[in-house]
């Protein structure tokens, strides 16, 4: 990658998330590695069951039991955070990593006013007086575009509409200027016309506050508009990772390629959408070799037996044997 002078803000190495069940251990995230640089927006995209949300939860230490990190490490500014004790991890979560979830109601306590939640978060992580904290909270609410923040600050979450609530959540995530924000499907629960507002706001706020973003979503459109780089996940692994333009417009992995073709677009008159046959395998029956091989139109013998690692192709890295030089020569 081009800027080697910047050390990555977040490093995830060989992350493996397991769920022990009575029918054996399910591996939901398997050998996932990626970096996020300071101020960068990394999109993590995939269909349900791809493991994208679990990767996010693992990074912030919010995996729900019995899920657990079975291997690998997560480093924030070079410091390991995947094995921190609960209390310390909570400090990291508030102060260094902010969170925005799909449903704003799960991030806001319905019993407290919006102001109290903001002020408390600021007071926990910063050494300021209560008045200063309140002033900062009002400024933040104004910054995220909430009209009449002096009045709205004393209202409860249920008095806000869905879009306004998500604005409050963004304010809450950024109120102590974290270095990283993890946004898990931040626009999925919102109406189409609101989604664009929230995406734009999230992007602007993170830029102004100097926060990097890990944006987890199933919506390629959101990724295309927001992310600098994108990781495409399939069956618990990264299939392709690279600059957003390369991945969206010139997808290399057959899965990404099929995925992009299956999205209907206005102005594209086709009778049939590109169709990836079948569906994402259940965690209990992930095929041998490349997990995508039974659905892949280009699969050959090696795909069925050997699991591909990420192979660099231009600026992108692709987990597909089609791009392996040795295999290419053999094919020729």
């Amino acid at each position: 990658m081009s800027d080697t002078e910047r050390t990555p803000l977040l490093e995830v190495r060989d992350l493996r998330v397991e769920f022990p069940t009575r029918r054996g251990t399910l591996v939901a995230v398997n050998g996932v590695s990626f970096d996020i640089k300071e101020g960068e927006v990394l999109g993590v995209v995939g269909e349900s069951g791809a493991g994208k949300s679990l990767t996010g939860s693992a990074v912030i230490g919010l995996l729900e039991p019995p899920g657990r990190i079975a291997a690998g490490e997560v480093r924030l500014k070079g410091r390991r955070i995947d094995n921190l004790p609960y209390r310390e991890m909570r400090r990291v979560r508030g102060r260094e990593i902010g969170m925005v979830f799909q449903d704003p109601l799960t991030s806001l306590n319905p019993l407290y006013t919006v102001g109290r939640q903001l002020v408390e978060t600021i007071l926990t992580h910063r050494d300021v007086s209560e008045e200063t904290a309140r002033k900062q909270a009002i400024d933040l609410l104004a910054e995220v575009g909430i009209p009449a923040p002096e009045r709205r600050i004393d209202q409860y979450p249920h008095q806000f509409s869905g879009g306004m609530r998500q604005r409050v959540v963004i304010a809450l995530a950024l109120c102590v200027n974290p270095k990283l924000v993890i946004a898990d499907e931040p626009t999925t629960a919102l109406d189409v016309s609101i989604q664009a507002q929230i995406i734009k706001l999230l992007k602007r706020m993170c830029k102004e506050h100097g926060a990097a973003v890990m944006l987890i979503t199933h919506d390629m459109g959101v990724i295309a508009e927001t992310a600098d780089r994108v990781a495409v996940m399939y069956a618990g692994r990264i299939a392709e990772i690279g600059p957003v333009r390369d991945v969206v417009q010139n997808a290399k992995h057959p899965y990404t390629h099929g995925l992009m073709g299956s999205i209907p677009m206005i102005g594209h008159d086709t009778d049939r959408l590109t169709q990836i046959e079948g569906s994402m395998p259940r965690l209990t029956e992930i095929p041998q070799g490349c997990a995508f091989n039974p659905r892949c139109p280009h699969a050959f013998d090696r795909c069925r037996s050997e699991r591909p690692e990420l192979i660099p192709v231009d600026d992108t890295r692709v987990a597909c044997w089609l791009f392996d030089e040795g295999a290419k020569k053999a094919a020729e």
């Binding site: 046959e277 079948g278 569906s279 395998p281 259940r282 029956e285 095929p287 039974p294």
Partner: peptide, 8 residues
């Protein structure tokens, strides 16, 4: 994985 498995 049997979604499209159109076995004869």
């Amino acid at each position: 994985m049997a979604e499209m498995a159109r076995e004869p």
